[in-house]
Design a protein around this nucleic acid. Sequence first.
DNA 1: TATATATTTATAATAATTCTAAAACTATTT
DNA 2: AAATAGTTTTAGAATTATTATAAATATATA
Lengths: 137, 137
Amino acid sequence: MKNSCLTTKEIENVLKSKGIQPTAQRIAVCKYVLCDADHPNVDEVKAWADENFPKISLATVYNTMNILVEVGLIKTLRFPHSDKAIFDNNTSIHHHFIDEKTSKIYDISSDEVEVKSKLSNDFEVKEYSVLLVGNKV
Amino acid sequence: MKNSCLTTKEIENVLKSKGIQPTAQRIAVCKYVLCDADHPNVDEVKAWADENFPKISLATVYNTMNILVEVGLIKTLRFPHSDKAIFDNNTSIHHHFIDEKTSKIYDISSDEVEVKSKLSNDFEVKEYSVLLVGNKV
DNA sequence: TATATATTTATAATAATTCTAAAACTATTT
DNA sequence: AAATAGTTTTAGAATTATTATAAATATATA
């Protein structure tokens, strides 16, 4: 398993703090999803887990991802080019650039793209993000 | 059928100009999708067609939407809250506000939300759009 | 340790979309 | 106008993404 941004103990504590039982499968998924993963879809999480964890079912992967989204540890993204959900462990405001050819997603910080809303008050904006599409050279 | 923004003749011409044979089914779908529809999904297009056109199959609806996207008459949108494709007959740069509660999508013009990119040159941006999420009052 | 509760699993079910191949339609050639 | 070639539509099968189910397993609690 690759070097992770969080120790097992830390992941356990994060899960507990959110009221989630830190089972072996959940910890394994989190090791990938909260650290090394870069906008993975469910298949990628499953593939990683199959290589780095003795046994996990696809149902548990889906279930765990849904739980992580519910408690706000990750976010679900969907883009026009694919019908698969993509997950993002960066839950603060930021943006995405998607390469037309490769479909690779790049995180774009709020510093790099400025958004100014002049919307009327009846639009109460809670969050926003910019999707940029183009060519990465 | 509701009052449409394009006559049948005009739709025929639009399709022909894109190299698409203007069949009865395609014209019917276009009457809705290019005019009255407001961010419909495939089900909504099918439901409209079932009421306003003698007979059309779901496969033809999918097929027609795909063709319209290919030639650039409409765009596909996908948002985190749903795994269904949503179609937009506004193909120029604009933005979307989605109401958390109702999932209704509001078009937001470029005048209302300003986007300024400071991205480095290796990101060649071809198009972009802002997704705003919140509460519409 | 026994028991209650929660989680995981394999599999079935559902839902969105695409594929297939025959039938129906449209355009073109005669 | 009939024959032919090419295109589109259709019903239904296939595929893919995701959720539901219910039995087996694991964990927490008394």
